[in-house]
Amino acid sequence: MKSISLAEHSVREVNQLLHDQARELTEGQWRITEPDGRHALACGLDQELHVVIDGHAGYYCAGMNQKATVEVNGTVGVGVAENMMSGRVHVHGNASQSAGATAHGGLLVIDGNASARCGISMKGVDIVVGGNVGHMSAFMAQAGRLVVCGDAGGALGDSIYEARLYVRGSVESLGADCIEKEMREEHISELRALLAQAGMETNPAEFRRYGSARQLYNFQVDNADGG
């Protein structure tokens, strides 16, 4: 495993090293030390690297990830794994706002809490949160699955298109067009698989499922003056 310190190298140098290795794939295992909250760490990776960030990361950590596995031994700032396409990002701590925003694929695991707007506009990513998520999570979610082992804040799934939301604890309020749905055997089994992938030992039968009522898909004259 190669170890590189951000106390000695710039973010640009470190990201370039990861991109170079990605092309040659001569060194697949990386450890980044002294991140000290720097932004845009391990962004744009597109090969099967395994990167461990030892400490707290800043904004947009592991953004646009493809194929790579990125682990953070600390907290992350706004927009972790935003626009991820594939691969796995695992935060062994709390995440700030907009975790997994617009992500198309892959798995984002947050062991702690995620704050507001977790999974905003998610387009196919799977997100598993060990703790709570803040308000407006899964806002305008289009595809993928959001699993919350704790509680969800206000306006969960507001203006949701598709995507399945599983919450174990309380939901402060549901957003427009988001409703509770029946938890069938197929949902319990997909949830069991997701929890296992994320390494969470939680009983899938304790969750409730939420999703789209599909009432906002088409223009309805009854809603013309509504807010």
């Binding site: 909250g37 932004h39 707290h56 800043g58 907290t75 700030s96 704050s115 507001a116 308000h135």
Partner: peptide, 22 residues
């Protein structure tokens, strides 16, 4: 505003770090 500003404080690596709720 950002964690970067806290990175140099003594004992920060074992501090409780969280985002204040709205």
């Amino acid at each position: 505003s950002e964690y970067r500003a806290l990175a140099g404080l003594p004992g920060i690596s074992t501090a409780r770090v969280w985002e204040p709720e709205p």
